[in-house]
Write a protein that binds this DNA or RNA. Structure first.
Length: 502
RNA sequence: UGGGGUGUAGCUCAAUGGCAGAGCGCCUGGCUGUUAACCAGGAAGUUGCAGGUUCGAGUCCUGCCGCCCCAGCCA
């Protein structure tokens, strides 16, 4: 959340797990596996067939349409529906994944974004121009292929298309990303092309599913989505961690949290959340940091810190279950061991900060009460199968807006949630200080600009109320669910230190 | 900002201080069902930049630059 306000070798990217076909260029150093075989999403969650007769299509160029004089039975389909078209002559559009051309038979594996299919032709079964086109086409060339669908156990995905027409809409050129490992830097420089690879597609599908699950979860529970501003005014010392921009001659900053705004909205709607991009100018260079990332921030009126933790574990359980239920193929492609994910159920273990320090000291750590937990400490504490809550930190280690713990004023009512398997902090939350005088005292103690927080203090002047909320880092959460090492792969176009393009 | 690595063909990497190479990709040819196909051949290099040591530097030394990992900061 917004703690910031307080004061404010190279390696090869395994884009995939194994050095393998470009379809899953991976950061090197992983054992080979069969992930590339899992190209097709098959028929899982296939809704009604999305069949569109070619004659109605607007985007195919005339020449292609005229070349494909289709009978009434010819249909343009998406590859995910392939299984329901066995025996049909269909038209597919997509990109070349691999080509295997022999003297008298050729195989072209086509990806259309919804699935994968092998197009096959015998030399004597097609005209010379078609044969020439299919045997000289290169990776990522754009195709329109007409042919008959049949079951074929030898084909990837179990089906293939016997080609009758094969049209190259555009050449693939010398596609930079090859069927092999690449370095991280190279892949990130080509992120716009890397997205097409099997593992990257799987990763981003899981991300999209989790995002949808977030909205579904809160919608079904009566939360109101509040979109908070991205451009914000000056708020003082914390500027070092904020991206500054010019706002008609005024200083403005890109938001690093929506929390203050959802606190205001909580008094209007009781249960609210915001979910959007957030910006941190910290010069962090670790696998857990991005300068632009997506954060979910629920805020609930009349919820105390315990209610807050219950919401967190219930939400996270829901998100993990959704990913397991609907992204099984993606997790398989990613070679994610899902045994631990399947056990994610409330309640999660709860360890107080004070207890955590005692445990760490007993284990030989030199940490002293009052110090914030380091990454190594967190990893030790997260040695559970479930995510673990660490709650009630010393107030000096946390943000000004966190509510003083009535049972131990040295601490505040807050929690971090540490994911297992070394993924670390994915949530930070707290009960908010709802007492005007105490909040004001904290703002002064931190030497924050009081005037900038005047409207925030109004929330305590006019019908103040107990409330709690938290911030969940989307990329960190999805990194854990998908088992990826670095958050940069969990966002389509990562923004990091010294990386602003593509 | 510290600490540790690393930089050689388009890409991934080799090369005791002694002729700069392989695989992939690309081009040419061969091969009825491939599975990252395979076989044969071809094109492809200012070894990150600037100095230095040496008969000789990709290799050793100094400085600079880029990137990666870890830490701090946090989601």
């Amino acid at each position: 959340m917004m703690m910031g306000l307080r004061s404010s070798s190279r390696s090869s990217v395994t884009c995939g797990a194994r050095p393998s076909c470009w379809a899953m260029p991976t950061i090197s150093s992983r054992p080979p596996g069969p992930a590339w075989r899992q190209g097709s999403r098959s028929t899982r969650m296939l809704p009604a067939r999305l069949v569109t007769p070619i004659p109605g299509s607007e985007h195919l160029e005339t020449r292609n349409r005229s070349e494909a004089k289709l009978s009434d039975h010819n249909m343009r389909i998406e590859l995910r529906e392939l299984g329901s078209h066995v025996g049909d002559e269909v038209v597919i559009e997509g990109w070349v994944q691999t080509v295997r051309a022999h003297a008298k038979v050729a195989f072209v594996v086509v990806r259309d974004g919804t699935g994968l299919v092998q197009a096959v032709m015998g030399r004597q079964d097609v005209d010379p121009a078609t044969w020439e086109a299919a045997t000289t086409v290169t990776q990522e060339s754009t195709l329109v292929v007409t042919g008959t669908v049949r079951k074929e156990p030898r084909a990837p995905g179990g089906y293939e298309i016997g080609v009758s027409r094969f049209t190259v809409l555009a050449p693939g050129g010398e596609f930079p990303i090859q069927p092999k490992e690449h370095g991280v830097d190279f892949l990130l420089d080509h992120r716009h092309l890397w997205l097409r690879s099997t593992q990257q597609r799987a990763i981003l599908r899981v991300r999209a599913e989790v995002e949808q699950a977030i909205h579904d979860y809160f919608y079904e529970r009566g939360f109101v989505r509040i979109d908070t501003p991205i451009l914000t005014g000056a708020i003082g010392e914390s500027a070092g961690t904020l991206f500054e921009t010019d706002y008609f001659g005024e200083r403005a900053f890109l938001a690093q949290t929506g929390q203050l705004y959802v606190e205001a909205a909580a008094a209007a709607f009781r249960k609210v959340y915001c979910f959007g991009p957030t910006f941190r100018a910290e010069k962090s260079k670790t696998r857990r940091h991005l300068t632009e990332f997506w954060m979910l921030e629920p805020e609930v009126a009349f919820a105390d810190s315990n209610d807050n933790m219950r919401l967190q574990e219930d939400l996270l359980t829901y998100l993990v279950q959704r990913a397991l239920e609907r992204c099984g193929e993606e997790l398989t492609v990613l070679e994610r061991d899902t045994t631990l994910l399947e056990r994610v159920r409330p309640p999660f273990p709860r360890v107080s900060y004070t207890e955590a320090v005692a445990r760490l000291q007993a284990a030989g750590s030199s940490i002293q009460w009052g110090e914030d937990l380091g990454a190594e400490d967190e990893t030790k504490l997260a040695a559970y199968e479930l995510p673990v809550f660490i709650y009630n930190y010393p107030r000096e280690a946390k943000a000004f807006y966190m509510k003083e713990n009535p049972d131990d004023p040295r601490t505040v009512l807050c929690n971090d949630l540490l994911a297992p398997e070394g993924y670390g902090e994915i949530i930070g939350g707290s009960q908010r200080e709802d007492d005007l005088d105490k909040l004001l005292a904290r703002i002064r103690e931190e030497h924050l600009p009081e005037a900038a927080y005047n409207w925030y203090l109004d929330l305590r002047r006019y019908g103040t109320f107990p409330h709690s909320g938290f911030g969940l880092g989307l990329e960190r959460t999805v990194a854990w669910i998908t088992g990826r090492h670095h958050v940069r792969e969990l966002i389509p176009f990562p923004r990091m230190l010294h990386r602003l393009t593509p």
